[in-house]
Design a protein around this nucleic acid. Sequence first.
DNA 1: GCCGCGTTGTTCCAATGTAGCATCCATGAC
DNA 2: GTCATGGATGCTACATTGGAACAACGCGGC
Lengths: 166, 166
Amino acid sequence: MGFEFAPRTLSLLSHAETICAGRGVRLTDLRRQVLGLIVQSEAPTGAYELLDRLRATRHNAAPPTIYRTLDFLLENGLVHRLERLAAFVPCIAHDHPREQAHEPGCENPGHAAQFLICRRCKRVVEIADPALADALAEAAGRAGFTLGQTTIEAEGICAACDAAGK
Amino acid sequence: MGFEFAPRTLSLLSHAETICAGRGVRLTDLRRQVLGLIVQSEAPTGAYELLDRLRATRHNAAPPTIYRTLDFLLENGLVHRLERLAAFVPCIAHDHPREQAHEPGCENPGHAAQFLICRRCKRVVEIADPALADALAEAAGRAGFTLGQTTIEAEGICAACDAAGK
DNA sequence: GCCGCGTTGTTCCAATGTAGCATCCATGAC
DNA sequence: GTCATGGATGCTACATTGGAACAACGCGGC
Ligand SMILES: [Zn+2]
Ligand SMILES: [Zn+2]
Ligand SMILES: [Zn+2]
Ligand SMILES: [Zn+2]
């Protein structure tokens, strides 16, 4: 069934179709719809806010509905979870020039990413800085640590808000 | 009133006294006791687990008791909160050779720190790597971002577990 | 058709965190 | 000493976030 989406949303959604096809997993209506809700949001969105919006079209959605769907999207690298906000943003890795490959043995398909969160407009910038990832890997190595998944998030003021804000 | 603490705990506690005296805030019995519980823990500890332990001696403690106390300890840089775990660890900044100064205008007294979390033994290593902090500051700068507080946490396997684990 | 398995529905519950207001108590002014 | 003040704590109730367990559905291959 068809839902109405903006061009950018459609682009990310079609990319998601490609990803899922390549991984042999099913991007169902529910999953596509939740991904669409996340992509359409200007700011990171909490699970229960997504649930509320989902209920506009899917009356019987419940917490497990949204959490299972989010798990799927996370496992397949289509969205990220911001730990500081307990909220979700779409992954825009395909906007990056070269998608960062994972070190072997890392179970999670999501790439290593970093996030800049504007405390004023609430918007988030996803970056994938190899220097940053390397610096963390090196610091971990010095501590004798075998690195798994990493969380790098910073809160601050984005360029637009900085310019606007006097 | 006196509680029984191990030497390491006493050392961190006396350091906390110094910090609070210098900042003109009061390290009350409750706050000292909660800090002691956190320091005594081998692994990061959740708020409700701290609350349970606190109730052994303070029967009428409730969620606000522990959260307000944790807020105080966080505001004064005596503990850290691990976002990935929703749990708390003592700050060991005074163990570092030089305590990292804050960039001016940063409201929070806590220093910039990074954490390595062992998924096997659950222990956490706090590091304060200037190269890592700088790399993030630089990446933020390139994105036109004015940096505030940062969260850098990595999950993995610590050296001890790596050696022990076959 | 029928089975098998992944997906979704449904109910209930666990864990984490906060608002609002009352009470207590340490401190300093008088 | 007394009293006023403001911070610290007690206390009730609630909000938010997340997950367990089991039933029902539905699309594949056979
Ligand atoms: Zn991404
Ligand atoms: Zn902004
Ligand atoms: Zn610290
Ligand atoms: Zn370990």
